[in-house]
Simulated assay, not measured.
Amino acid sequence: MAAAQMISKKMVRTTMESLDRIDRDILTLLQAEGRLSGAEVGRRVGLSQPAASARIQRLEKSGVITGYRAVVDPAALGLHIQAVIRLRTTHAQLARALDFASQTAEITSILRVTGEDCLIFDVHCPEAGRLEEVVDALARFGPVTTSLVLRSYPSKPLTSATPTAT
């Protein structure tokens, strides 16, 4: 592991251990509503706007908050089929499989996992024929297992899994 990655992980670990209840409340709010103003965040957690903004900036600078983004409904973009594809590949094929996945627009997330499978892909396609093409292309790298997603449920905020500061 590169020195910069080790320092970064160490900094985040230290920061996570030092989060108090207000920090966790701020993280929960921003994960649900990332466009809240500092004043509104402060009002909801019982801080002044400057104090809330300072905490948010500290969470950003320490790497706990890594960005803000819009959450888009895939169906609104005509992507009506969602699937999870698991790939079992070899170490020799791993880099090529990751390169292919990074260049395939329908693959929206990639997880490298332990166990029998190596990679798990979240895939959004407009129709079954395109899903078939993506599955066939991934199968060049090893056996695939495809599961259609029937429904997706909202993610829980990460702060609910963080230890409480003492």
Score class of each variant (00 low, 15 high):
A128G: 08
T164L: 07
E17V: 13
D25I: 03
S37Q: 03
L158F: 13
A83V: 00
I85P: 00
L77N: 08
G46Q: 04
D99S: 14
R35C: 01
G115M: 13
H80P: 00
T90Y: 12
A76C: 05
G38H: 05
I26K: 10
R86L: 08
L119I: 14
T66V: 10
T146N: 14
R130Q: 00
I65R: 02
T14K: 10
I110G: 01
K9S: 13
A76G: 11
R88G: 10
L47E: 12
P126H: 11
R58F: 01
A54L: 11
V41L: 12
P126C: 04
I22A: 01
Q103C: 02
M11K: 10
A139Q: 14
A137C: 09
T159A: 15
Q49M: 15
S8L: 01
G129Q: 09
L94A: 08
S155R: 12
V71K: 02
G46L: 06
R13G: 05
G46W: 07
R86K: 06
H124D: 08
V45T: 05
R69V: 06
S48C: 05
A95M: 01
A128I: 11
S109Q: 11
A105C: 01
D25A: 12
R69W: 04
A75L: 11
G129D: 06
R86V: 07
T145I: 04
G42R: 00
R140T: 15
R43N: 12
E106R: 03
I56A: 08
V113T: 14
A97S: 10
A105I: 08
V64N: 01
P163Q: 13
A4W: 06
V144W: 01
A32S: 09
R112N: 08
I56Y: 09
K9C: 09
V84L: 02
E127M: 11
A70D: 08
L150G: 14
